[in-house]
């Protein structure tokens, strides 16, 4: 009888331990992050003007899924406003901007790891401003994986050529999260993370 009681107590104790193991992220927005990377040798004070593509380019690993462009304008406006707040002036692509800004959106399901060059199909995209460079990134963008995830990447690309001929990306901001919930919910979270990308990059100003 005593032994049985002890067995029972031990079992309860184990149950208690398992049930109180800490949980971590719970809500959808708990997974939202803003991540940035920049060229440590770049002098952001020397940039003056920029141009920006007026659409967002979508990359998806789901075949046959067409992505809506209904929020492009809102995203482009938000990014433009942030760069203007930092003292840069938006000009047309024909006026020799000192950098160009591209916005790309990624939607993924179950990507295990994503360190390879993203932009294999990139060259067609470059038509809009006729850049002289090969479609290579100077660094590999971050891996994006698992669940139905979405990332919006903002790339600030210097128009000055790099010695190695790669695309001269000087700053990247990525808003990354789960693509769950209503459009307005996603857009709200996206706005917040895009603003955070700029907020955590104090060096980015004229």
């Amino acid at each position: 009888m005593k032994r049985l009681l002890i067995l029972l107590l031990t079992g309860l104790f184990a149950q208690f331990l398992v049930s109180c193991y800490p949980e971590g992220a719970d809500k959808i927005q708990d997974y939202d992050v803003a991540m940035t990377n920049y060229d440590k040798s770049a002098d952001f004070g020397t940039f003056t003007t920029f141009s920006i593509a007026d659409t967002v380019v979508y990359f998806s690993n789901e075949n046959g899924v067409t992505l809506s462009h209904q929020f492009d304008q809102q995203i482009v406006d938000l990014v433009t406003a942030n760069f203007e707040k930092r003292g840069y002036v938006r000009v047309d692509t024909t006026e020799n901007p000192s950098f160009v800004v591209t916005i790309s959106a990624f939607s993924n399901i179950n990507y295990a790891y994503y360190v390879d060059n993203w932009y294999n199909n990139w060259s067609w995209y470059w038509g809009w401003w006729g850049g002289p460079f090969n479609p290579y990134y100077s660094w590999y963008p971050v891996s994006v994986y698992s669940y139905r995830t979405g990332s919006v990447a903002i790339d600030m690309i210097s128009t000055a050529a790099r010695a190695d001929g790669k695309v001269n990306v000087v700053w990247t901001g990525i808003a990354d999260g789960l693509l769950q919930g209503s459009s307005s919910f996603i857009l709200n979270r996206l706005d917040k993370q895009i603003n955070q990308c700029f907020a955590q990059s104090p060096y980015l100003r004229k």
Binding site: M35, T36, V115, S143
Partner: peptide
């Protein structure tokens, strides 16, 4: 840092530590 490259990424988000 991420595996596979040397870049430093600044990431803002909810951190959970164990």
């Amino acid at each position: 840092h991420f595996n596979g490259n040397d870049n430093t990424y600044t990431i803002t988000g909810n951190q959970y530590r164990y």
